[in-house]
């Protein structure tokens, strides 16, 4: 039943009209090996985006799928549209940080950052 539902969903899904979410991320090294404290700022149409659930993961651009960084939930920060998360990476280099939004807005945004 679920399969049929899924198949139906796949064929009939219509794109929802909504403005894209913009994301910005700022990371500072924290205590611990390859650990970073990140501040994520989300906005949509120039206004801060509040009240979404953000899960932060990461992948390496050159060797995708092979690094499974455990996604962490970001906590809302002091300012509207701000979220905080602590990332634990596996090695230095360029990472594609994966922000998965759920709740009020469903989306996924990739931000590329260099971690030295």
């Amino acid at each position: 039943m679920r399969v049929i539902f899924l198949a139906f969903l796949l064929l009939a899904a219509a794109p929802a009209i909504a403005q894209r979410v913009q994301a910005d991320i700022d990371c500072k090294p924290a205590k611990g090996l390859m650990t970073y404290d990140c501040v994520i700022r989300l906005s949509r149409g120039g206004k801060p985006l509040e009240g979404v659930e953000v899960s932060v993961g990461a992948d390496m651009p050159s060797m995708p799928m092979a690094h499974n960084v455990k996604p962490v939930k970001a906590a809302p920060g002091p300012k509207p549209g701000e979220y905080r998360a602590r990332l634990e990476l596996e090695m230095s280099g360029e990472w594609a940080v994966k922000l998965r939004l759920s709740g009020a807005v469903r989306d996924q945004i990739i931000v590329k950052r260099n971690f030295d």
């Binding site: 969903l9 796949l10 899904a13 219509a14 794109p15 929802a16 989306d107 996924q108």
Partner: peptide
């Protein structure tokens, strides 16, 4: 490439 999200999967 947000088709999956727009389809609510």
């Amino acid at each position: 490439i947000r088709w999956v999200f727009e389809a609510g999967i």
